[in-house]
Amino acid sequence: MEKVGIVGYGAYVPRYRIKAEEIARVWGKNGKSISAGLGVYEKSVPSMDEDTATISVEAARRAIKFSGVDPTEIGAVYVGSESHPYAVKPTATIVGEAIGATPDMTAADYEFACKAGTAAIQTCMGLVKSDMIKYGMAIGADVSQAAPGDALEYAASAGGAAYIIGKDNIIAEINETVSYTTDTPDFWRREGEPYPGHGERFTGEPAYFKQVLSATKKLMDKMGTKPSDYDYVVFHQPNGKFPMRAAKRLGFSKEQVEEGLLCPIIGNTYSGSTMIGLSAVLDVAKPGDRILATSYGSGAGSDSFDITVTDKIEGYPRNNIRKMIENKVYVDYALYMKYRGEFK
C-alpha cells in the first residue's frame, strides 16, 4: 500500500484573550474554582474582522508557505466548522481562491460539531490514495458560539488548523485511521439559532468518553499497539480535564498528553481543537515519533489517527503555534462582547 500522510500544516489562533475569571466576574461565579474545575484559564477571542473564513485562510496560507506545495496542485479543499460565515455559500471557495488553488479543484464545507476537520482529513486521504487528486487540504476552524452566561462560554474560543494531505514529501505518515460514530444528541444548534444547546452532564460519559475511548481502542486493536508505543497523544479538548481523563482511562501518561493540550490557554477551538493540538505536537516531534490523535464531534463521533513522523520533518519550519499563542492581548468582558458582535 502506498503511503499517505501530512505534507504540510499550519495553524492560527487570534491574538485576543479573555480570562475565565473575567467571565465569571460578570456572571457572579467563582472564577478560580471554575478555572480549576474545567482546566481552562483563558480563551482566544476573534477580532471584529475575523471569522471562520479568515482563520481558515491564515492557517491554509501557513501550510502552503511552510510546505512549499504548489497551490495549483491542490485538488480538494474541505473546511470543517460549525460557525461557517454563511449558512449557504461555501467557506471552502473563499479559502481555495485566497490560496490560489482555484479553479481546478473540488470543494465543500463540512459540519460535524468539533470533528468536521478530521473528517476532512479522512476524505482527503481517500482521494489521495485513489489518485483522484495529488494533494488535498483539510481545515478545521471555528469562531465558536456560546450563549452569554452558559457554562460553554468559559471555553468556546476561536482558531483553526490546515493540513495538506498527499503522497510526496510526507512529514508525518498517517498509518491508519478509524472512526466510531453513533446518534447521540449531546450538543446541537438548531437552524437559525445563534447559540448551541447541550445536555449538561450528558455530554461526558455517553458522548465524549464513549466515542473517544471506543475509537482510540479500536485503532490500537487494529494496529496491535498499546499506549506506551506512542510518544504523544492528542484528544479533542472541550476543556482541560476531559482529555486528561480519557488519557488516564486508556493508560496514557500525563506527559504524553501535555504537549498537544492547548485548551487551558486558548480554550476550545471546536473544529480546530484536535487539529491545532496535533500541530503543537508536530512543531516539536522528532523523526520516528509516533502520535495518536483522536477527535470528537458532538452528535456524536470520533476519528482516530495513528501517525509516524518522518525524517522530512527536520526541514519543516516549526515552533509556530505556541509562539503565536504567546503574542496575546487581554480584553474585558464588554470588549469581548463587542468583538463577538453581541451588541445588536
Binding site: 477580532s47 471584529m48 474582522d49 475575523e50 471569522d51 473564513a53 479568515t54 485562510v57 491564515e58 496560507r61 460565515p85 454563511y86 473563499i94 485566497a98
Partner: peptide, 20 residues
C-alpha cells in the same frame, strides 16, 4: 498582508474579504 473581513452588506447581504 493578512486576510480579514472588510465589510458586509447588512446581516442578509454578502460578506467582503480582503487584505489588511
Amino acid at each position: 498582508a493578512c486576510f480579514r473581513r472588510i465589510e458586509e452588506d447588512g446581516t442578509r447581504g454578502a460578506i467582503q474579504y480582503g487584505y489588511k
